[in-house]
């Protein structure tokens, strides 16, 4: 319940689950180095506000 609530709050500002991303990277790209949490956040911020995605409404 709490876990889902936190996940929802983060997703409201466009940040998906870091651990899940790490798990994805380990399974699919084990040869590549893993991003740190701060790198991950920065990448997500750039992706959310790059102008390509319409993620807010009137």
């Amino acid at each position: 319940m709490i876990r889902h609530l936190l996940e929802m709050l983060r997703l409201m500002v466009g940040v998906p689950d870091y651990e899940r991303y790490l798990a994805h990277r380990r399974t699919h790209h084990p040869e590549l180095p893993l991003p740190t949490h701060a790198e991950f956040i920065l990448e997500r911020q750039k992706a959310r506000y790059d102008g390509r995605s319409q993620n807010r409404c009137c």
Binding site: E7, L11, M12, Y21, R25, A47
Partner: peptide, 19 residues
């Protein structure tokens, strides 16, 4: 793991409503 992530229905509802 970044943009395409299967998400719990309730969590995605919150995301969509906030948007």
């Amino acid at each position: 793991g970044l943009d395409f992530v299967p998400t719990h229905g309730g969590v995605l509802f919150g995301h969509h409503f906030a948007a």
